[in-house]
Simulated assay, not measured.
Amino acid sequence: MTKALERRQKLRAALIQAAEQMIAERGLAGLKTRDLAREIGCANGAVYNLVADVDELILRVGSRTLLRLDEALTLATNAGEPTPRESLVRIALAYCDFAAENLQLWRALFEHRMETGKLVPDWSVHDQMQLFRHIYQPLAALFPGRSPEELGITARSLFSAVHGMVALGLEQKLVAVPLPALRKEITGLVRAMIDGLIAHDVKGAAAAD
């Protein structure tokens, strides 16, 4: 590796880290390339020699956030040998806790919009979709008769329900919910959804007989 390439890689890593810190402190709207350039010690225009554009920079920060979320979800289900049902509860609570502890970075994952006509690159889509395995695996154990497509839909539905509660519960306005109460409500929601899905499958199997 040449010294110039090594310097560029170090500067690029510093840029992404500085952007992550700026979003964490100011929110996505507070991300300014001029401030980032000053922070890492380069010209403003040099930022675009390190990343293609602001979209890529935000997605790179997002991938770092998703990696840490992935680690948090893995840790939540590694302790002991939880049942699939309990694993889903732990995953939901870990998601809620991560969002509360990394609020601005978590919000940025959903607030960011690509420029019109631009597609999210494959590497970013892959980083996002990887997280669904945490939900998919316990669902596959609970519902072995469901097809991969059906399990995928159920996983997304469960995520949407939990994400909606977290998003509203952590909103710093009138609908804000204290974190302990939010965690309790999320636990009840996940258990109720799983119990309902199990009952639905049992009823369907009985009707088929």
Score class of each variant (00 low, 15 high):
residue 139 L to V: 09
residue 155 A to E: 04
residue 163 H to S: 04
residue 38 R to S: 14
residue 4 A to M: 04
residue 145 G to A: 05
residue 70 D to A: 08
residue 67 L to A: 15
residue 19 A to C: 08
residue 40 I to R: 15
residue 48 Y to F: 11
residue 181 A to I: 07
residue 92 A to Y: 04
residue 42 C to K: 15
residue 121 P to D: 01
residue 50 L to S: 12
residue 97 D to H: 08
residue 199 A to F: 15
residue 86 E to F: 02
residue 65 T to S: 09
residue 43 A to V: 14
residue 65 T to Q: 02
residue 205 A to R: 13
residue 134 H to W: 07
residue 190 V to A: 06
residue 28 L to R: 06
residue 84 P to K: 02
residue 208 A to T: 11
residue 18 A to G: 10
residue 18 A to C: 10
residue 35 D to S: 13
residue 196 G to R: 01
residue 123 W to M: 03
residue 20 E to S: 12
residue 198 I to V: 13
residue 93 L to F: 03
residue 13 A to Y: 15
residue 8 R to L: 11
residue 195 D to I: 01
residue 104 Q to F: 10
residue 78 N to C: 11
residue 67 L to I: 14
residue 142 L to D: 07
residue 37 A to Y: 09
residue 32 K to H: 14
residue 166 V to F: 00
residue 153 I to M: 04
residue 159 F to L: 10
residue 143 F to S: 03
residue 104 Q to G: 10
residue 146 R to T: 01
residue 38 R to A: 15
residue 181 A to H: 11
residue 94 A to G: 05
residue 119 L to I: 05
residue 160 S to L: 06
residue 124 S to A: 07
residue 150 E to Q: 08
residue 106 W to E: 02
residue 4 A to P: 06
residue 64 R to M: 04
residue 177 V to W: 01
residue 24 A to P: 05
residue 7 R to N: 14
residue 177 V to L: 10
residue 165 M to C: 06
residue 86 E to I: 03
residue 4 A to W: 04
residue 170 L to V: 00
residue 94 A to W: 04
residue 140 A to W: 00
residue 4 A to L: 09
residue 154 T to G: 05
residue 173 K to F: 12
residue 185 E to N: 13
residue 22 M to Q: 08
residue 28 L to P: 01
residue 198 I to S: 10
residue 192 A to W: 09
residue 150 E to N: 04
residue 47 V to S: 11
residue 127 D to P: 04
residue 53 D to M: 08
residue 68 R to W: 05
residue 157 S to R: 03
residue 189 L to H: 08
residue 116 T to D: 12
residue 43 A to Y: 12
residue 92 A to D: 02
residue 15 L to M: 12
residue 150 E to K: 02
residue 166 V to H: 03
residue 57 L to M: 08
residue 46 A to V: 15
residue 191 R to S: 02
residue 44 N to W: 13
residue 157 S to Y: 07
residue 196 G to H: 05
residue 5 L to E: 14
residue 152 G to H: 10
residue 79 A to C: 06
residue 11 L to E: 15
